[in-house]
Computed example of a mutant assay.
Amino acid sequence: MEYYNATARKTKQGLQVDTHSHGVHYLIDEPKNAGGTNTGMNPVELELSTLGASLQATAK
């Protein structure tokens, strides 16, 4: 059985979250007009991206 692991920690900058999974690092944030610093995808954009990737893997 394969196990998955991910970490997410709040940074000191606005609503920014620093995440790590499977050796990959990325930032999740909100746009400036929503209180963030606009340095990464917001959670909705990230969710839509994961849905698109999942659909591509399923279609393959």
Rank of each mutant, 00 (worst) to 15 (best):
Y3Q: 14
R9P: 00
T37Y: 03
A6H: 06
G35D: 02
H22C: 11
L48R: 08
P31D: 09
T19R: 08
M1F: 14
D18K: 10
L48A: 09
P43C: 06
H20A: 09
L15P: 02
S54T: 06
N42W: 02
E30R: 01
T7D: 13
D29Q: 05
V24D: 04
D29N: 09
Y3T: 12
A53V: 06
Y4L: 15
A57K: 02
V44T: 05
G23C: 07
G23E: 08
Y4P: 00
T37D: 03
M1Q: 12
N38E: 13
I28C: 10
A34C: 00
G36P: 04
M1G: 15
T39L: 08
K10Q: 13
T58N: 07
L48Q: 12
Y3P: 00
T58W: 12
E45V: 01
E47P: 00
P31F: 11
N5Y: 14
V44F: 04
D29L: 07
D18E: 15
T37I: 08
L46Q: 08
Y3M: 14
T19V: 15
T39K: 08
V17T: 15
L51D: 06
G23W: 09
K12N: 14
D29K: 03
E30H: 05
K32Y: 01
G36S: 05
L51K: 07
T11G: 11
S21R: 10
G52W: 01
H22K: 15
R9N: 11
T37A: 04
G52V: 04
T19W: 09
A59G: 00
H20P: 00
V17P: 02
K10H: 10
I28K: 04
P31H: 09
N38I: 00
G14W: 09
A6W: 08
T39A: 05
M41K: 10
P43A: 06
L15K: 14
T11F: 08
T50H: 01
Y26C: 04
L27G: 00
Y4C: 12
V44C: 01
Y3A: 12
A53P: 00
E30D: 03
V17Q: 07
A34W: 02
N42G: 03
H22Q: 14
N33K: 05
T58L: 13
A57P: 02
M41G: 03
D29S: 09
A53E: 07
Q56Y: 09
T11Y: 09
Q56K: 10
M41L: 14
N38Y: 06
A8L: 14
S21M: 09
A34E: 05
G40P: 00
T7Y: 12
E30I: 02
H25A: 06
S21V: 10
T11Q: 10
T58K: 13
L48E: 13
S49G: 07
G36C: 06
N38K: 08
G40Y: 02
D29C: 09
G23P: 06
A6Q: 08
V24R: 11
E2L: 13
E45D: 13
L55I: 13
T19P: 00
R9M: 13
N42H: 05
T37F: 05
M1E: 11
K12L: 07
V17I: 15
E45L: 09
N5H: 15
Y4G: 14
A34Q: 04
E2Q: 15
H20R: 11
V44P: 01
H22N: 15
Q13A: 15
E45G: 03
M41W: 12
T39H: 04
E2M: 14
K10A: 04
S49D: 04
